[in-house]
Simulated assay, not measured.
Amino acid sequence: MNRYEIRLSGAGGQGLILAGIILAEGVILEGGYNVVQTQSYGPEARGGASKAEVVISPSIIYFPKVTNPDLLLTLTQKAYDKYVKDLKPNGILIADEEIDTEDLPSTIEVYRLPILRTAREELGKSLVANIISLGVICGCLDFISSEKLKEAVLARVPKGTEELNTKAFELGLRMQKEAKK
């Protein structure tokens, strides 16, 4: 791997900025890579556009922005419509099950998963959709272990929510493994 670009996109309030920070910290804990994390969100605190980007490289990162993601997470249709065109032709798309992903090139590895529904219905907290997403992402990457990313998750989540977030992360890992079969 020379340079790996990840974009997490959706709406404000979905915890994607935190997810980007956790992902970057997990890669750092794994060791052997330089990592840059950037973020942007609309003026609305909740519901506006939101994205976090992570660039990973074994060498110096001269440009910190994602231009053509190798992996794109989209939790809203609006984010999908805006960013899917940037995804590399052989990239990975992780999209919530509600997103219409028609007409993608066959070279893109697509995971349409019930991320938001699982957070809401199985865990009773929409707020952990970002941690479920990190579990799915971890299952797609071979340069970060689930142990290191889970360690980063537990270092960042609010005290008293460790068990819930561990369960969310592990659900995401399982979701991705089942989808890959």
Rank of each mutant, 00 (worst) to 15 (best):
N34H: 15
N34T: 05
N34P: 14
V35P: 04
V35W: 03
V35K: 08
V35T: 08
V36S: 00
V36D: 00
V36M: 00
V36T: 01
T38I: 13
T38L: 14
T38V: 15
T38K: 14
T38Q: 09
Q39V: 12
Q39W: 12
Q39M: 09
S40K: 13
S40P: 06
S40L: 12
S40G: 15
Y41Q: 06
Y41T: 01
Y41C: 01
Y41D: 00
Y41F: 15
Y41H: 15
Y41I: 02
G42W: 15
G42Y: 13
G42N: 11
G42Q: 10
G42S: 11
G42D: 09
P43L: 03
P43I: 11
E44T: 01
E44C: 02
A45F: 12
A45I: 07
A45M: 14
A45D: 14
R46T: 04
R46H: 12
R46S: 09
G47C: 08
G47P: 14
G47M: 14
G47H: 13
G48E: 04
G48M: 05
G48W: 14
G48Q: 09
A49K: 12
A49N: 11
A49H: 10
A49C: 14
S50C: 10
S50Y: 07
K51L: 03
K51Y: 06
K51S: 03
A52H: 07
A52V: 00
E53Q: 10
E53V: 07
E53Y: 10
V54D: 02
V54M: 03
V54R: 02
V54P: 01
V54K: 02
V54L: 04
V55F: 01
V55Y: 00
V55I: 12
V55T: 04
I56F: 09
I56S: 08
I56Q: 06
I56G: 05
I56P: 03
I56V: 15
I56R: 08
S57C: 13
S57P: 06
P58Y: 09
P58S: 07
P58W: 07
P58K: 12
S59W: 14
S59Q: 12
I60S: 04
I60R: 07
I60Q: 07
I60A: 04
I60C: 02
I60D: 05
I61L: 12
I61K: 15
Y62I: 00
Y62T: 02
Y62R: 12
P64E: 10
P64C: 07
P64L: 12
P64F: 11
P64Q: 11
K65C: 03
K65L: 10
V66H: 10
V66G: 08
V66Y: 09
V66L: 14
V66S: 08
N68W: 00
N68Y: 08
N68L: 02
P69V: 04
P69T: 07
P69R: 03
P69L: 03
D70T: 04
D70V: 04
D70I: 05
D70F: 05
D70E: 06
L71F: 13
L72V: 02
L72A: 02
L73G: 02
L73W: 06
L73V: 14
